[in-house]
Design a protein around this nucleic acid. Structure first.
Lengths: 212, 212, 212, 212
DNA sequence: CTATAACCGAGACGGTACGTCCAGTCTTGAA
DNA sequence: TTCAAGACTGGACGTACCGTCTCGGTTATAG
């Protein structure tokens, strides 16, 4: 989680050992810290983001950060979760009956999202930090990736029930087949993320899972 | 490239004056630095790897590192390239006539490779650093990923000629379809990399690209 | 003050942000730094004295030195002031009625002092640094030289009142006449500092200021 | 001599061990080095003066400096000697028969000289470096100070023969009495060097050495 | 009249220290 | 007890020079 440690201690180093009293926590400080983190990561990037700068920007003592978070990645994860949670995954992917069209629509929207710097920068920072740090990636996947993944799984399941997908196809695996190339291309920047890519991806995947 | 900078300057900060004279470069120092980097990244991990430690281990002045590399990521990339280059991509993927079997064999070997800590640790470190730094990822992709990718592309092309793949399928895209989920799963550690995963992945992909 | 800077900036380079809070200064660190400086300058000499070595010896972070002092010369000045202050100038030069004898006694003691390496080394280092750096010499003169000079001035004034010195002689100038050759000889090492020199010096000076 | 070494090696460190062949020495390089030194010391001061900068400015390899001089102080000493030698001490101090007037005239000229920055800066730099380094001060005194001192000694001897000075006065000591306060005041900047100071100094000294 | 040994410009090299930045801990005083 | 503030130890950063060491190239005697 901390870029300085490969295997972060169970209780993080910044914590003096005592568990702080959550009930007395300052909500305004918490918000200021999360807010400052989001702003700063956009301004200077993740690697130049420092706890000190966050504290200074938030008008908060460094200890207040160390008291409640184990690392800057954790802070950022919290900060970003706050943003993403408001995006609602509740409604899921629309089901117009046209699986290809539905998937393309959502994937195209995701392309747009990942081409938006203010969203992309912190998300990428977290993904990169997660790639390096197992404990962070676990959090990152669970809190940021899985909600988005699940809506695809549900849509594929609906498709199967509607006979648009072969019976023996695993919806989760189909999702992985669809999102994997997308994520890989994005993370490693092998090629740009375009609508065309999204459409082609959907076409290829659907071809593999279509009923025979 | 450097974890301290999101957008490294064109000429990196470590370079004091200007372009050193390549012809007078000390080959023994170069090797010692690359060697020390590989050892150290295995011992302490990427984030705890320091230029100072590399210099000390290599018996070299820090400036000699800063003179020739812009960051520790670049050093590691060179060091790792030296190792990987010896792996031979020349022979490519065997063509026994059974596309599925051939792909599974190679992908299973890759699974093994990515489950070998001495290989995985520095490779992951570079991938993570590359995810955060565009100029590094460009290098990473070109020098470490593409050679591995190309052998798949060639195998798919052979398959198409052999009538094992539909005519309208793009070999490069098929490769992306195959390797994308693999890379995504590995980078984000969503699920473990197993032979079963490799096999299933090949099966799903081939189903999508098979001649109709 | 700093041997690296001829004209030190108003706020010295070592100071990152701005004026630290004096009230929270660690007294133990301050003492350890001053102590380590005095020991080290005796061991390795001024020019080989480094801030890093002082910090290491004092068990202190470098920043703690840079926070409170602009240069190693300033550290040494403080360290030396602490030593010298304990020497007492309070009683001044004895007045036995024999001006020549009184002056010779004190000047001979000074000869001894300047021939004592543990005293001479840091004092000379500061004097040399002061010769090169105006802001340091101002401090050096005010804190280390003037107290010693003043006792002579007072003795000369007493001598004038006692009729041992011509009425029109300026006590301060007489002091300069006495100490100038002494200092010049010491600094430039033109000749060794001996009792004979001290005595001769007093004789010559008194001859010039005696009542006619 | 070198600010990095308290006790410079007998044969200086920069010398590889072999004595270079003086007859093949490049005169143009020598001049360029001396010239660059003088310019640079005026621009950046002694402590910020570096061998590398001298070499660069002189368009000379570093080794060429290290081959012929043991330290930057030695270079500067040579450079300054070249300048000072042209000032002629040959004619000595005029002897108009009026000792006081003669001394005041010369001392006033010296006041002017020491108030001229282009002369004062390198001279002070050398004096300060000499104060710290015995082997340099020996050179400094012999090559730069003694020629100037000797003219005073000769003038005092002439004065004694002319009956303007007591028979038992040592001309060398009288000179020390005159120049010591001057040098001390200049080096430590206790007070400014003025004509008035020069005159008063002469008056006080002459009073002490006048025939009784 | 070469050749061969030096000096020379250039600058890479192993090092040391610089002054800075920031991590994570600790202390103080106010609320 | 939390909090803002910030001093503290510690360690790595990237830079600047040190003095040494090659590397061609260019003289300038010695054979």
């Amino acid at each position: 989680m901390d870029e300085k440690s490969e295997q972060p201690a169970r209780t993080h180093p910044g914590r003096t050992g005592r568990t702080p009293d959550t009930s007395r926590r300052s909500e305004s400080s918490r918000k200021a810290i999360l807010d400052a983190s989001m702003r700063l990561v956009g301004e200077v990037g993740y690697n130049k983001l420092t706890i000190e700068a966050i504290a200074a920007r938030a008008g908060v003592g460094k200890q207040t950060i160390y008291r409640w978070w184990p690392s800057k990645a954790a802070v950022l994860l919290d900060a970003f979760t706050g943003v993403v949670d408001e995006e609602s995954y509740q409604q899921g992917i629309p089901d117009t009956g046209d699986l290809a069209a539905d998937l393309k629509a959502v994937l195209r929207a995701t392309v747009d999202e990942f081409n938006t710097p203010s969203f992309e920068a912190p998300y990428r920072a977290l993904a990169a930090a997660g790639a390096a740090d197992p404990s962070l990636s676990e959090q990152f996947v669970r809190r940021l990736m899985e909600p988005g993944r699940d809506v695809y799984v549900r849509r594929f399941e609906a498709a199967r029930e509607a006979g648009q997908m072969a019976e023996d196809i695993d919806a989760a695996f189909a999702t992985e087949l669809l999102l994997g190339p997308f994520q890989a291309r994005w993370l490693m920047r092998t090629e740009p993320l375009t609508y065309e890519f999204a459409d082609t991806l959907v076409d290829y995947v659907l071809r593999g899972i279509a009923p025979r």
